[in-house]
């Protein structure tokens, strides 16, 4: 594929949902076991996440999910077998077309670069979260300290029963590993 073809095919994807399979629905409702696991991993002892009595006395009126856990609820449940062979993609079907296109063009390395959250409200136990992600932009080819690459930016809108509870801009660099000389 020529560079011009790649740019054209990437441009066709911009502004569209990154997945053909529709919005991502969290496999489980907001729940205490996953919150407790998260809080322990990050040693975040904020009582509104795990102490029902303290949380009831807080402005939130009860246990809430850590706000920056928002992205975690709708992460794909991974198929562990073969994950390295799939380049870390959790499942066969979860990969966005834009990433496949860049992989095929040799930009196989992936590095997160920016994450920007707007938290509209905190989430309570039992709520079901849905994430809808649209490809916002793909940069022209840039020279980075890792090699040549494209910055890919998508915007995710998080909803509970169609109510927007948060938004996220996420940007990654897809780069050609070991390409520093170019």
């Amino acid at each position: 594929m020529s560079g011009a073809d790649l740019v054209e095919r990437l441009a066709e994807l911009v502004g569209r949902p990154i997945s053909d399979t529709g919005p991502t629905i969290a496999p489980d409702p907001i729940n205490q076991p996953m919150i407790r696991h998260w809080a322990a991993a990050f040693e975040d002892w904020n009582p509104v996440y795990t102490d029902a009595e303290a949380a009831a006395q807080s402005r939130f009126g009860g246990i809430v999910a850590p706000p920056l856990m928002l992205q975690t609820w709708t992460m794909a449940t991974p198929l562990i077998t073969g994950i390295a062979e799939r380049g870390g993609s959790p499942t066969d079907v979860s990969r966005a077309a834009v990433l496949n296109l860049l992989d095929e063009a040799g930009f196989v390395g992936t590095l997160a670069s920016n994450s920007e959250f707007e938290i509209v409200r905190y989430l309570h136990l039992g709520e079901m979260l849905t994430a809808t992600t649209v490809l916002e932009s793909v940069s022209d080819e840039k020279q980075t300290r890792l090699g040549a690459g494209h910055f890919v930016t998508w915007i995710t809108t998080y909803t509970v029963d169609d109510e927007v509870v948060g938004r996220q801009l996420f940007r990654i660099l897809k780069f050609r590993a070991g390409d520093e000389s170019s």
């Binding site: 696991h37 998260w38 322990a40 856990m69 975690t72 991974p78 562990i80 994950i83 870390g88 992936t110």
Partner: peptide, 8 residues
């Protein structure tokens, strides 16, 4: 793992 990111 707590954030459900299994990238190797």
């Amino acid at each position: 793992i707590a954030s459900r990111d299994f990238m190797p």
